[in-house]
Write a protein that binds this DNA or RNA. Structure first.
Length: 364
DNA sequence: TAGACGTGGGC
DNA sequence: TGCCCAAGTCT
């Protein structure tokens, strides 16, 4: 592996900084989290932007800040409210970690976001990228903030051929950024690198002719910008068969269940469902047995009225959706509720189960 | 280290 | 349609 000193050899650092920052000053997009440098807002935006597009984040960010304008507001909010504000954004542990970290800041740091790498990176959900982003953007500290954009842009500019899918590769880029980051304007340097990756130096067809740092780009010089970055393929998701039931009582209330506080879609609400194992028995039998045993009640299920496929990054759910009627009382537990069609809107559901409800409404 | 962890959009 | 992606972190 090459040393960062060698990679940066003969690179016109100061000219590059100037060209990048000047471009960012005039061409940056107007975004809600760029209206001020409130560390809390920078923090919230950076968490939301993890693996998520800017256009997707904008409405969620505005709504989230309206509901939880300050660290104190978020710290004292019910977790269900926070998850409801996150509903549809994905990677829900981000929301729960953010609230836990905000509580930590409120209790341990008097409500002020700390401004050292050690303290910030200890907060839940704050890794090396977000640490650098908060430090540079909110506090002007020259700390690398290496995300996918930065690795793509710098792999091209500096002709770095390490596989960016490997965790250790991020360290290579962090070392490089340490060498070339502007000490005068680390915020605009880091954001400029990311902005460039988002709107000019894009993955499949980079707009090199519009690029403000084209003169510095080794990949462009050699015509290999399409070959970079090197990124190995991910494994395809595994298929899982699910049987779910929309169960209602005599009043038309829906039976819903809160998922466990760890793992996939933690603490979100859902319709009763089981992972099917066809070697045990029929799907309908397994679903009925599960609901009756686990919820201590009785149900009668009709055959499936729809099939839903939902693709996660690592799993594919194939869901057969049954319609059912509750014929007994349900166990008195916090993770089990009977709610009206109106009340159900107050609960945070994963998109897969929103699809189930939508299909149910079509047939009723 | 590699897998878990979501979703919607682009081509 | 299917695949890849988008401002990563945790275990």
């Amino acid at each position: 592996m090459k040393q960062s000193k060698d990679i940066v050899k003969d690179f016109q650092i100061e000219q590059f900084q100037h060209d990048l920052i000047s471009w960012f000053e005039t061409e940056q997009r107007i975004l809600p989290w760029r209206q001020d440098q409130d560390p809390y807002k920078v923090w919230v935006s950076e968490i939301m932007l993890q693996q998520t597009r800017v256009d997707t984040v904008i409405p969620y960010f505005n709504n989230f800040i309206e509901k939880f304008p300050t660290i104190v507001d978020l710290a004292y909010a019910p977790e269900d409210d926070v998850l409801k504000a996150w509903e549809g954004l994905g990677y829900y542990s981000r929301a729960r970690n953010l609230q836990a970290a905000v509580r930590e800041v409120h209790e341990q740091y008097g409500g002020k976001v700390p401004h050292t790498p050690d303290e910030i990176s200890k907060l839940k959900g704050v890794g090396p990228y977000t640490t650098g982003a908060i430090l540079s953007i909110a506090y002007g500290v020259p700390q690398p903030a290496v995300d996918g954009n930065v690795m793509r842009v710098l792999s091209r500019i500096l002709s770095i051929w390490d596989d960016i899918a490997k965790p250790k590769t991020r360290k290579v880029f962090e070392e490089v950024v340490h060498e070339i980051i502007s000490k005068d304007s680390p915020s605009f340097f880091n954001q400029g690198l990311m902005e460039l990756g988002a709107i000019v130096c894009t993955p499949t067809s980079p707009s090199c002719l519009l690029c403000p740092v084209r003169e510095h780009c080794r990949a462009f010089e050699q015509g290999v910008q399409q070959e970079l970055p090197v990124k190995s393929k991910k494994k395809p998701p595994r298929a899982v068969q699910i049987a779910a039931a929309v169960v209602t009582d005599e009043q038309g209330n829906f039976l819903i269940h809160k998922r466990p506080n760890k793992g996939l879609l933690a603490n979100l609400w859902e319709f009763p469902n089981v992972e099917v194992d066809l070697t045990i028995g029929t799907e309908q039998t397994q679903l009925t047995s599960f609901v009756e045993a686990d919820y201590d009640t009785e149900v009668v299920l009709d055959p499936p009225f729809t099939v839903i496929q939902h693709v996660f990054s690592h799993i594919v759910w194939n869901i057969n959706v049954y319609k059912g009627v509750l014929t007994g009382n349900i166990a008195n537990r916090d993770d089990l509720k009977l709610v009206s069609v109106k009340e159900i809107e107050e609960y945070a559901f994963p998109v897969s189960h929103q699809k189930i409800l939508k299909e149910y409404h079509k047939i009723t």
